[in-house]
Nucleic acid binder design. Structure first.
Length: 881
RNA sequence: GGGAGAUUAGCUCAGCUGGUUCAGAGCACCUGCCUUACAAGCAGGGGGUCACAGGUUCGAACCCUGUAUCUCCCACCA
């Protein structure tokens, strides 16, 4: 068999993904096994695969593949999110390119375009996930706007409305003038900005006095309906009951007094613009002020302003400063730093704006979602996020759930022309309900709310509705088989940025409609950053295209690369060199396989002691490391699990085991290997492939099938995860470590060309490694089993066979007696000190009273260990005199 | 302003109850090797006042108190 020297990943990726799909290895249906379920955080349907997805989905795939191998009924549900704002923006932009204006289209026509777009491009990201190797149950692919899922969203709205948790009200919302919609607080990104603080003079009515008011938003002056000062501010107490004249529009407004105003900031006066600032709005409510909205939805100045009408808000700001300056009404302009809110979706500057919106009262529904995270029913990994979560949940605001868009689930609220409102699933039902309130109702006058619901208002149901969208109206006791079997899911892997948007809300929904948590573990990944610590983003252009990376390093290489640098909950500083490391690892594995594939089993070949020792050792080593790997997995320490696997394969298997068992060359010809060694080696290779499989699905499947002919169903993807040996021989492992040191030292000495063979021998004899080797041997001579050591005695010396060269090491070590005494004394002193400390601890009443029994047990063990060690050392010292 | 977390080798990070796993790993770097699985490799090597200053302790990377720097979240002052 001719095997290429370097591993060709692209080919394996194509072959195996299709093979797995065809054989339905990803498919899951309820059966007698325990389920292990993950629902994908649905990527935006507009999305293309970026580094964040890669990280996220690789972790999910690793978890699901391992669960599958552990014998669980593994189900990973894929899907996409309709992402109302992002998608609508994209479709609007696309239509614009075609010369179509959204405003000219009817709602129905626009939605037709949007659906068309979704059908055409909506599946791209899922196809990309397949390239990565994602082993989702693709038959279960869902979309948050699938008919049944949308219906569930409407059911939920109606249910919450009937429970009295949804209300409609005029509120200050974050208005996105570009997207022409309200966005939630969480979708506003505050960025530090350099702003001008303009000091504007307001004339006091009936006096030649002016009041100076500092503002960063002079364009809202036309909306001023009061000036506010702190009642304790002595500078202004004489102005009680006075009015001022607002510049530009010459409106007379009162001076009001409120504790809210900070005396120290600016001039200690605040212009109150209730329509354009949340705090001003609150002040306006409190002091019953008039509200004048000077901005149009698109951010231009409105008719109500009475000046600068139609001008853009930023242009107006510049112009108004100029005009005020000309009128001598600007006393000074300061440069200050403040925070400006930007829309996460469109990056437009957010405008606080009054509008009629639908809200969900959070206080009634959010309690269980908080309690069950605090009591550990739902685990956040890493748990440092619990505090953040708690803080948010305790201060949660009502959720504005309406969006002024067309793409999404339309709010099932209906109005008649008399101002009555009802909530109903269909127009027919709405008419019935409205008739009760309005006897003269005509069918034509019934109008549905124009707005749609926030995207998160559908995705918060995701872990429920992907299985059974009808459960909301049927009730949880009538859930279908799927939901009963798969819910609650096991793990959720997502980014901490959407802990509140999504995770918290899913928890709320889970308890509200299922009475149970939606997931047990929430693994929060970090944010993928570049080497300089900047967030990877399209606009910065610092994000590599994941598909290019796959092409360059192979999917396995990229997967390994991503996870090598991603400790849970920490951001990861991504660098392509990690992928290179991943690819190199894949190649290493490939070559280990090449070596083994080249072995020829000879019927006459006998197993050497070295081979025997190596086999025993590796069996222990494999078990020992597997136990560690399992432990890392159980704590979701993915990078550690991977690194342990990496070192097990590279260092232990390739560098030591294979080197030890590989047959010698005689006359340029590789010797045959005995069957026992060969079989053991194949067995180890198979175990290692299984352990590697979750990380590197393609290469492991490829090699799995190249090792021997297998049945079509005998794939590594469904192979059984190896088990840990119960009787681990720790002593043997420790002894082998000593041998390794010796071998390394001998190799090193051998390589020193300037030394003669005799000199080399001397160096070896005197080396620390040899001494420590014999230290061990003297104590446990009978147990010696170093792989490179053979038992024959040559004239009072042991013969060490290390590769092709032999070294003779005298049995009686000529150690320097003084040195040895010094060493032993030092060690003895240390142990005595250690013993003393343990004993102090154990005699400490407070410690004994407070410590757990196990902790005391550990201390007692330390004490007895130290005692026996001291005894041994004293014996050794007495022998030396 | 409120809260959370971090600071250990050039980089990314481990280090669990304070001590015989205590200063570690991987990568990068340096030196020597194209040796018969692998140069995408092998063998060796250098490198850290554990951010700083105090304290507690027989003993501190680890506990306490300050300081500095960074990151994130929440709120936000015109």
């Amino acid at each position: 068999m001719e095997i290429a020297k370097t591993y060709n990943s692209a080919q394996a990726e194509q072959t195996w993904y299709k093979y797995w799909l065809d054989n339905k290895f990803f498919k899951s249906t309820p059966d007698h096994r325990t389920p292990y379920t993950i629902v994908i955080p649905p990527p935006n349907v507009t999305g293309v695969l970026h580094m964040g997805h890669m990280l996220n989905n690789t972790i999910q795939d690793v978890l699901i593949r391992r669960a599958r191998m552990l014998g669980f009924n593994a189900c990973w549900v894929p899907g996409t999110d309709h992402a109302s704002i992002a998608t609508e923006a994209k479709v609007v932009a696309l239509l614009k390119e075609q010369g179509i204006n959204k405003a000219d289209l009817s709602r129905e026509d626009f939605l037709k375009h949007a659906w068309g777009w979704k059908e055409k491009y909506g599946g791209i990201i899922l196809e990309q996930l397949k390239k990565l190797g994602a082993s989702c149950d693709w038959d279960r692919t869902r979309f948050t706007m699938d008919e049944p899922l949308s219906e569930a969203v409407i059911d939920v709205f109606i249910d919450l409305y009937n429970k009295g948790n949804i209300y409609r009200g005029v509120r200050m919302v974050n208005w996105d003038p570009q997207g022409l919609t309200a966005v939630s607080d969480e979708e506003v990104i505050h960025k530090e900005a350099q702003s001008k603080l303009v000091y504007v003079k307001y004339k006091i009515e009936g006096a030649e006095e002016f009041m100076t008011v500092a503002t960063t938003r002079p364009e809202t002056i036309m909306g001023d309906t009061a000036i506010c000062v702190n009642p304790t501010d002595e500078r202004y107490t004489h102005l009680k009951g006075k009015n001022v004249i607002v510049p530009v529009v010459n409106r007379v407004v009162p001076i009001i007094f409120d504790e809210y105003v900070d005396k120290e900031f600016g001039t200690g006066t605040l212009k109150v613009t209730p329509a354009h600032d949340i705090n001003d709005f609150n002040l306006g409510q409190k002091h019953k002020l008039q509200t004048i909205d000077v901005l149009n939805p698109n951010g231009t100045i409105s008719e109500a302003a009475g000046a600068y009408v139609g001008m853009d808000r930023f242009a107006c700001r510049k112009q108004i400063i100029k005009d005020l300056e000309e009128q001598g009404l600007v006393s000074k302009i300061e440069e200050i730093k403040n925070k400006v809110g930007y829309s996460e979706r469109t990056n437009a500057v957010i405008e606080p704006r009054l509008s009629m919106q639908w809200f969900l009262k959070m206080e009634n529904v959010s309690k269980p979602a908080l309690e069950n995270v605090l009591n550990g029913e739902i685990k956040l990994i890493p748990d440092k996020f619990i505090n953040t979560y708690k803080h948010w949940m305790e201060n949660v605001h009502d959720w504005c759930i309406s969006r002024q868009l067309w793409w999404g689930q339309r709010i099932p609220a209906w109005y008649d022309d008399k101002g009555n409102t009802v909530v109903a699933k269909t127009k027919e039902e709405a008419i019935v309900q409205l008739r009760i309130k309005n006897a003269e109702l005509t069918t034509e006058s019934v109008k549905q709310d124009e707005d749609v619901l926030d995207t998160w208002f559908s995705s918060w149901l995701w872990p429920i509705t992907v299985f059974d969208p009808a459960v909301i109206r049927n009730g949880k006791e009538n859930a279908n088989e799927d939901l009963k079997y798969y819910y609650p899911t096991n793990d959720l892997v997502t980014a901490p940025e959407i802990l509140f948007f999504w995770v918290a809300r899913m928890a709320i929904a889970g308890y509200e409609w299922m009475g149970e948590k939606p997931f047990t573990n929430v693994y929060l990944t970090g944010i993928v950053r570049d080497k300089l610590g900047r967030k990877m983003s399209k606009s910065l252009g610092n994000s590599p295209d994941p598909l290019d990376l796959i092409e360059k390093y192979g999917a396995d290489g990229v997967r390994v690369g991503m996870l090598l640098c991603s400790p849970a909950g920490n951001d990861l500083m991504f660098d392509e060199s990690y992928c290179e490391q991943g690819r190199n690892f894949a190649n290493k594995v490939w070559n280990a396989f090449r070596l083994i594939a080249g072995f020829e089993v000879g019927s006459d070949a006998v197993q050497s002691d070295a081979q025997k020792a190596a086999i025993t050792w590796f069996e222990n080593k494999l078990s020992e490391q597997l136990e560690i790997i399992n432990d890392h997995y159980s704590k979701y320490r993915m990078s550690d699990a991977l690194m342990t696997t990496y070192k097990l394969v590279w260092d232990d298997f390739c560098a030591w085991y294979l080197e030890a068992i590989k047959p010698d060359f005689i006359d340029g010809k590789a010797q045959p290997i005995d069957k026992a060694t060969y079989d053991a080696t194949i067995g180890y290779l198979e175990s290692l492939l299984k352990i590697m499989h979750p990380w590197m699905p393609f290469i492991t499947e490829e090699i799995w099938h190249l090792i021997k002919e297998r049945d079509t169903k005998d794939c590594i993807i469904v192979a059984e995860w190896p088990t840990v040996k119960s009787n681990l021989d720790k002593k043997q492992l420790a002894e082998f470590e000593v041998s390794k040191e010796l071998v390394a030292m001998v190799r090193n000495v051998r390589a020193q060309k300037q030394l003669s063979p005799k000199e080399k021998l001397e160096v070896i004899e005197k080396s620390e490694a040899t001494r420590s080797y014999f230290d061990n041997t003297i104590i446990k001579l009978a147990n010696l089993s170093a792989f490179s050591y053979t038992k024959e005695k040559v004239e009072g010396a042991f013969s060490f066979q290390i590769k092709t060269t032999e070294f003779y090491i005298p049995l009686a070590m000529t150690l320097n007696k003084e040195d040895e005494i010094e060493r032993l004394t030092k060690e003895l002193d240390y142990n005595k000190g250690f013993l003393k400390s343990v004993q102090i601890k154990l005699s400490n009443e407070k410690f004994v009273a407070n410590a757990k029994p196990e902790v005391i047990e550990v201390e007692r063990k330390k004490e007895s260990d130290a005692l026996s060690k001291i005894k041994t050392l004293e014996e050794q010292l007495s022998v030396l005199g």
